[in-house]
Amino acid sequence: MISKAALFALLAVWGVGTACNVAPVLAEEASSEDQADHSPAKRSFSNRVWVKSDTGDLPGVIRIFLSDGTLVQDSCWETHRLSQWHMTSDTGFTWNEDGVDISAEIVSVSASDLVLSVKLGGEAVEERYMAAAVPYVCPDMPK
């Protein structure tokens, strides 16, 4: 049988009580200066794990655009990378790799697919991603 003290401690940790009622700030309540960071495009593709679907010979490219401005990039054959990223327009964003800014545009986004137009060198390259299935394991790589 659970003692009253243990039950009270669990409820306090879980935030069930009158002293812990703090409501989170909603995106709609943000100042006008922060509105670009809460754009519908950013909300629609950030905080999701995207796996590149047009990989060719190198499968397992993963990008995660976290809403705090961190881009997590990983693949089945390279070490992961953390970069800063930010929205530059309603559908445009930029991240930095090794001191070089890379610009991209969201061509389309849905619950299951993301298509980006990434500016590499002087040309735009289309990259296609799909929402990662859980669990996900890198495929066996030929040695």
Score class of each variant (00 low, 15 high):
D37S: 12
E28G: 10
C20Y: 08
S31Y: 08
A36V: 08
V107H: 08
R43L: 04
R81G: 03
R48E: 15
E123M: 13
T88W: 02
K4M: 06
T88Y: 02
E97T: 04
L116P: 00
N21H: 11
L120N: 14
A36E: 02
T55V: 12
M87L: 08
D101S: 08
V72P: 00
A111T: 12
Y136P: 02
D68H: 13
A5P: 01
M141V: 12
A131C: 12
E127K: 10
C20M: 09
A6R: 14
A132E: 10
K143P: 04
W50T: 01
P59W: 06
D113N: 15
S46C: 11
L116D: 00
L71H: 01
A19L: 10
H38F: 05
A9I: 11
A131N: 07
Y136S: 10
P59M: 06
L10W: 13
P142D: 06
G60N: 11
L7V: 07
S75P: 01
L82R: 09
V61C: 01
K4C: 05
A131S: 14
E33G: 04
V134I: 05
Q84G: 05
T55W: 03
W77I: 13
G17C: 08
K119V: 03
T88I: 09
S103D: 07
T94C: 15
P24R: 04
V13I: 08
A133Q: 13
N96M: 13
R128G: 03
D90E: 09
H80D: 06
D57C: 15
S83I: 01
V115I: 11
A124V: 03
G92I: 05
